[in-house]
């Protein structure tokens, strides 16, 4: 299963994703998402699931079913837009609270013994070289933390360029 996390408007996503395969899970902004409150409930109260009830509490489980995750986000200070970042902040139940050492850094252990593939499309006018470098290092860091075996990062001048990307048609 592919999972697409995106911040496009309803109108844009309806047009862009019309031909999607049925086994693709779309994570869209319904305007109701709550932010992570740092309670660790997804680790020590309801392990594997966020305690907030807003239809985004099952992100850990959704990622566990994914082969590939595709992120489409406006580039914001060298990172994701608030909605996309919110979804990722609410996805840490995919991992365990326990730590391990990877490349001489501490990271969380895996709850699900699997690796993911990740494609990230940042869009926006005039994304600077500096911004792109930071965004690339962010995706690299995310890939280490979420056990991504292969990732790629692309930068688009506008969301309209997404219509040319085969993997999201």
């Amino acid at each position: 299963m592919n999972v697409i996390i995106h911040d496009l408007s309803t109108k844009e996503s309806e047009t862009l994703f019309t031909g999607l395969k049925s086994e693709t899970k779309l994570i869209s902004n319904n305007g109701q998402i709550k932010n992570c409150i740092g309670c660790f409930g997804c680790w020590i109260k309801t392990p594997g699931k966020c305690i907030l009830k807003d239809n985004y509490e099952k992100m850990g489980e959704i990622l566990s079913l994914a082969d590939k995750v595709i992120i489409i986000s406006r580039c914001c200070y060298g990172g994701y837009s608030p909605f996309v970042k919110n979804v990722l902040d609410r996805s840490i139940s995919y991992l365990l609270p326990y730590f391990k050492i990877k490349q001489n850094e501490t990271h969380h252990r895996q709850r699900y013994k699997k690796d993911l593939l990740l494609s990230v499309y940042f869009y926006g006018k005039n994304i600077s070289k500096k911004e792109a470098e930071i965004a690339e290092s962010l995706v690299k860091a995310n890939s280490i933390n979420f056990y991504v075996s292969k990732y790629n990062v692309s930068f688009l001048d506008s969301s309209e360029e997404l219509y040319n990307i085969a993997e999201i048609q």
Binding site: Y80, P82, L138, N142, N145
Partner: peptide, 12 residues
């Protein structure tokens, strides 16, 4: 706090 390697969404 750092969330998922970057600025948390509510602060963003």
């Amino acid at each position: 706090p750092l969330y998922v390697d970057s600025i948390p969404s509510h602060l963003l």
